[in-house]
């Protein structure tokens, strides 16, 4: 198993896509802060817009995740116009947008499909006592890459914030930031495992990548609404919201200020997706002939 992990780490760090994704992570982090800065400037210039944003933020908190927007968006805090900008809050807003997850999905689909696409898997699969181990080793390599992506994203977001806003960026609780990053890391690992499973199932990176992007961009919201209504009709007393049980919903909800209940649920959802996707991917790879 250790040999296979070393193999996948070697091929990952010798793959162009790995470095491109890391560079994109840096670029995306800078872009996010630049966009937030534009937002803050707009709010400063137009107090009415700031008022709307404040109302919108309060409404969003009240409505939780009942009405979700399509696409990727990060709502800036109107209090940032003149006040301090907490690094944890800033990081939370940017990471909750799902922009990092988008890169995770693209990377996972490319990485998971590479050995199948070029046939390299044929060189090693037969010589292993259990082909399913290849899933674990790929996941281990992905875990390293996703950790790097989240750490780089966090570092660049904070560094860019300090460049844009100087001393106004303040550091609150480091443990809160670590908790946020840890939970988001787990949710992103769950996403990577799901993409790995879909790639192995369909033998196509195009399908898994598209499915992952659709999930992050909330294209599946109408489907989720139908499910919510269907469950509501079956049991009207149960306040069921499927967004609470899917990865993208939890990525969007598990911010730095989220309640303990939301955070615990996010951990459980992340872990369940990670374990189930891994187990199913291992079973498929083990049972199916290598072609």
């Amino acid at each position: 198993m250790f040999n296979l992990i070393k193999m996948d780490l070697y091929r990952m760090f010798h793959s162009v896509s790995t470095w491109v994704i890391l560079l994109l992570t840096v670029g995306v982090a800078v872009f996010c802060i630049a966009a937030t800065n534009i937002d803050i400037e707009l709010m400063a210039e137009d107090p009415q817009y700031a008022e709307e944003m404040l109302d919108e933020t309060e409404e969003e908190e009240a409505a939780a995740s009942q009405e979700l927007q399509l696409g990727i968006s990060a709502e800036s805090d109107p209090h940032w116009i003149y006040g301090d900008i907490d690094a944890g809050d800033l990081l939370s807003i940017e990471i909750k947008s799902g922009i990092v997850t988008l890169l995770v999905v693209i990377f996972a689909a490319i990485f998971a499909n590479a050995a199948q696409k070029n046939g390299y898997i044929k060189n090693v699969a037969g010589q292993l006592p259990d082909r399913g181990m290849l899933v674990l080793s790929q996941l281990a390599a992905m875990a390293v890459q996703i950790l790097l992506m989240i750490l780089i994203f966090a570092a660049v977001v904070v560094a860019s914030g300090m460049i844009f806003w100087g001393d106004r960026v303040s550091f609150g609780s480091v443990s809160d930031i670590l908790r946020l990053l840890g939970i988001q890391y787990l949710l992103n690992m769950g996403f990577a495992a799901l993409i790995l499973f879909l790639t192995i199932l369909t033998k196509s990176s195009a399908f898994s990548m598209t499915a992952g992007i659709f999930m992050i961009l909330r294209v599946l919201t109408p489907v989720y609404s139908i499910i919510n209504r269907a469950v509501g009709q079956i049991s009207s007393s149960w306040k069921f919201d499927i967004n609470s049980y899917v990865l993208e919903g939890n990525i969007n909800m598990a911010g730095i200020d989220a309640s303990a209940e939301i955070l615990i649920r996010a951990v459980v959802v992340g872990a369940v997706f990670l374990i189930l996707s891994t187990v199913f991917a291992m079973l498929i790879l083990k049972k199916r002939d290598v072609r």
Binding site: H14, V16, G119, I121, L128, P129
Partner: peptide
């Protein structure tokens, strides 16, 4: 099977390496 080397159909190689 760990003592068996294989080349089945076309060679499976990473083209960018």
């Amino acid at each position: 099977l760990s003592r068996v080397g294989t080349l089945i159909e076309s060679p499976g190689v990473y083209p960018n390496m």
